[in-house]
């Protein structure tokens, strides 16, 4: 069987394109707006989110026959928040600057609807291996939107990418000004709205 035909591959690819958690299912918007003023925090957030999502999917999937039905939400929350504590401690230990930049939004991974949603909708009904791929797929689907939004906001808002100046001084001398608006909250809303428009139109076309 070819790689692209396997069930795992389908589960992995779907959230990246047609069933994107952010732009199509409208989940996990909060953090995707807040951490995207620059590219570095966006990448770190993607990484943290994907790791937590994959682990929580695997753990919940392993326990799916043991969790009593009516307290499953609290069990899921406990699993997720333990994983987030782990991620937070790791970030604080190895990437202190970025963890300061992300501030409360690492903690808010707990209430990110994507994680709860995948646990409820996928991990409770499927095996650990396929749940793992579902977690990775959704993490990356969330991540690419984050990175694209961050790319535009950083480029237009402060003229840098990854903290390096990319717009040459000559352009500034010519009268170009950074759009301070992009760094502020409304810029985030509008950029993500436009990206979603673009993506929807493209998917319809294919």
């Amino acid at each position: 069987m070819k790689l692209t035909k396997t069930k795992e591959f389908k589960v992995f690819m779907e959230p990246i394109s047609v069933a994107n958690p952010v732009s199509v299912l409208v989940l996990g918007i909060c953090s995707s707006l807040a951490v995207t003023t620059q590219l570095i925090p966006a990448f770190v957030m993607t990484f943290a989110m994907t790791a937590v999502l994959a682990c929580s999917n695997v753990i919940i999937s392993l326990m799916r026959n043991l969790i009593p039905k009516n307290i499953r939400i609290i069990v899921e929350l406990t699993v997720i928040s333990s994983l987030v504590i782990l991620a937070d401690q790791l970030l604080k230990a190895f990437m202190f600057d970025v963890s300061k930049m992300l501030s409360v939004f690492v903690g808010l991974i707990i209430t990110n609807c994507i994680i709860m949603g995948r646990a409820e909708a996928f991990a409770l009904g499927n095996g650990p291996w396929i749940s793992f791929w579902d977690g990775i797929g959704n993490g990356l689907g969330y991540g690419w939107i984050l990175v694209v939004v961050a790319f535009f906001r950083e480029l237009l808002g402060s003229g840098t990418l990854f903290g390096f100046k990319v717009i040459p001084q000559a352009v500034y001398d010519f009268g170009y000004v950074d759009m301070g608006f992009m760094v502020l909250a409304p810029g985030a809303f509008i950029v993500i709205g436009l990206i979603c428009w673009f993506q929807k139109t493209c998917i319809k076309g294919s």
Partner: peptide, 15 residues
Amino acid sequence: PKGLAGFGVNMIITG
């Protein structure tokens, strides 16, 4: 415009 209706326009209005 067709693709904008729904989530896209909501985000822009929130902005």
